[in-house]
Write a protein that binds this DNA or RNA. Sequence first.
DNA 1: GGCTATCTCTGACACGTTGTCTAAGCTACC
DNA 2: GGTAGCTTAGACAACGTGTCAGAGATAGCC
Lengths: 198, 198
Amino acid sequence: MSEIAGRRSRRRRSDAERSAAAVLDAAVQVLGRQPDAKVEQVAATAGVTRQTVYAHYPSRTLLVAAVVDHITAEAVAALDVADMESGTATEALLRWLDVTWRLFDRYPLLLHPSVAAAGPAESDRRHAAVVERLEKLIRRGQAAGEFDGTLSPAWLVSATIALGHAAGGEVAAGRVTTEQTAAALRHSVLRVYGAREP
Amino acid sequence: MSEIAGRRSRRRRSDAERSAAAVLDAAVQVLGRQPDAKVEQVAATAGVTRQTVYAHYPSRTLLVAAVVDHITAEAVAALDVADMESGTATEALLRWLDVTWRLFDRYPLLLHPSVAAAGPAESDRRHAAVVERLEKLIRRGQAAGEFDGTLSPAWLVSATIALGHAAGGEVAAGRVTTEQTAAALRHSVLRVYGAREP
DNA sequence: GGCTATCTCTGACACGTTGTCTAAGCTACC
DNA sequence: GGTAGCTTAGACAACGTGTCAGAGATAGCC
């Protein structure tokens, strides 16, 4: 362990860095798809011992947090590529939904209780970057008169995420196809926003 | 244990019935408010030993299920008093929201992961009675032209519940008042349904 | 190339919770 | 009053999380 914070106690070895990265990668794969997976399973996938996992991530909760952060970064990158600034707010919204929908599909973890259970405060700080882009385009749309201004942006963000969860759940339940559900989601969100159908 | 099913092996004693009821009551109070409470705590509240709880409810999961069933019955009773058949579908919808909103407030368990985690299949079978009444009035509203018929009743049910969860979360996070949130919820649901504002 | 701090692994254990079992004692009920 | 049924006390196994100590490997600096 290092001395008092700020005092570097030598260096950080490269194999430690690789281990930590391997663990995170494994965690993203394993926990991303099977949120109930045990630490042991993550360790095995990373080709490492359980204790080594704990050496880099003090608790399972923190490991899950790191996974969510990783996925969030992926989401932010995808959103930046999709460019939320260009076109009408409605068009941008549909792109936002498309990007996040794909992620929900790839990572069931995002739908899972354990993430939502992190509590609103923690949860919000975590996907702040993603949410922020949505909120920004909501404000843009409301200012432009594309979206109705009665409901607050903050609430619309929550509502959008909730509808996304519902849609993910429907697909997971196998009641309808992914495409049907995605269409229903787009439709519903636009209605809540008070936007004209494009 | 009874012989082969159907062969009653004497009778069921009244104190067993009372114990089971006491446990259920305690579970509704304790788990309804603190979904993470341990079996031990439920037992203590019921004035009974942990083993006795297991004697009546084979697992914690089944106990939670029984609690949800109990609350569901309460909900159904309240909905029947509110009479979903009379008035316009929009009016009935608002009554439905009012009733269920109150329950979400009384029983945080309904918002909790562990219930949603039961899986869509199990979850749906459970509040089938509540959902059924909503779906019925959605069909009524769509047939009457009060609600738009583009989106399927099944999806609208999911969307409504999801929005309810989001609203509950907002209140729990203390970001806004209960009344503001309830208003936003009503507003949003009506929009998703494609209903005119009353 | 060697020294040393760092890292990983092995193997163990504490802890909390769920669920099971047994033996003893109490109690409703015929 | 006898007996089947119920509750209790007191264990214990299983499982997952988290911790700790020591032995062995290895990266990095001289």
